[in-house]
């Protein structure tokens, strides 16, 4: 498997936040992880991204053990709920940031950034500063900045959490298209039931630091813990 997470555990001040985390993910697939606030989702992502050191366990990426690899060398990009665009750089410069750091030549950067801007449907916005963009546009720039570096794995921590319903739906479509176009492997964390089902090729449910990955979407829907059945009953109740 492309990503293998084995027996990861992590505690903060004697409180076990991540408990014996085990899962695998094939290349170019998205695993969406559903869970309530404070269940350990963010800690799990930060451990995989190398930003938090686990107390135990191993992570393999493309067959290589990456436990001791620093975040800048993991080729894993972590995207926060907040877009975190660099306020002193315009759209073009924000997207080009990761390439400039890797000292790629200027003409290649220009070509790749323009290609990305077209894919993100941001033509004509290149010179705008972050404060001149809408929430959806900002999130698109944030995606572009991450994807353009060709990361082996993309970690998305509730990326659409701060968007309104309409923008959120459009961003979900855009992400699906971009993920397919750039053959992205990703972990997509959300606390939105519908989003989890829509975004993932596979679905996991995290509760009190334990992650359960379901064999199929049907088994996820059937499980009472996930709350899908309650949701279905609610909508059925309205139509009666």
């Amino acid at each position: 498997m492309f990503l293998e997470v084995q027996h990861i555990v992590k505690s903060f001040h004697k409180e076990e936040v991540v408990k014996d985390l085990n899962f695998t993910l094939a290349a170019h697939q998205t695993l969406s992880i559903l869970g309530q606030s404070g269940c350990g989702k963010t800690t799990m992502l930060k451990i995989i991204g190398g930003l938090v050191r686990p107390d135990g366990g191993h992570i393999y990426l493309n067959g290589n053990l990456i436990d001791d690899v620093t975040p800048e060398k993991r080729s894993i990009v972590y995207l926060y709920q907040e877009d975190l665009l660099f306020p002193h750089l315009n759209v073009f410069e924000n997207i080009a940031f990761g390439l400039k750091i890797k000292k790629i030549n200027a003409s290649e950067i220009t070509d790749r950034v323009h290609l990305m801007i077209t894919s993100l449907e941001l033509q004509g916005q290149e010179k705008k500063m972050p404060h001149q963009l809408s929430g959806g546009q900002r999130q698109r720039v944030s995606f572009g900045r991450a994807i353009i570096t060709n990361p082996a794995l993309l970690l998305l921590d509730e990326p659409f959490g701060s968007l309104d319903t309409g923008t959120r739906a459009r961003m979900q479509d855009l992400f699906k298209r971009i993920a397919s176009e750039f053959r992205i492997t990703s972990l997509f964390v959300t606390h939105d039931l519908k989003e989890a089902i829509l975004m993932g090729d596979h679905i996991g449910y995290m509760q009190s630091g334990k992650l359960k990955v379901y064999e199929s979407k049907e088994s996820f829907i059937q499980d009472d813990h996930t709350g899908v059945q309650k949701e279905i009953d609610f909508w059925k109740g309205l139509t009666k």
Binding site: G49, I76, V77, Y78, F86, K102
Partner: peptide
């Protein structure tokens, strides 16, 4: 937020000095 910026630069491939100087 500043810590998040530093972490973001790290995952984009930048070191601490680059995070400090460029962001």
């Amino acid at each position: 937020k500043t810590k998040s910026y530093e972490e973001l630069v790290a995952t984009l491939g930048g070191n601490q000095w680059q995070a400090f100087r460029k962001v």
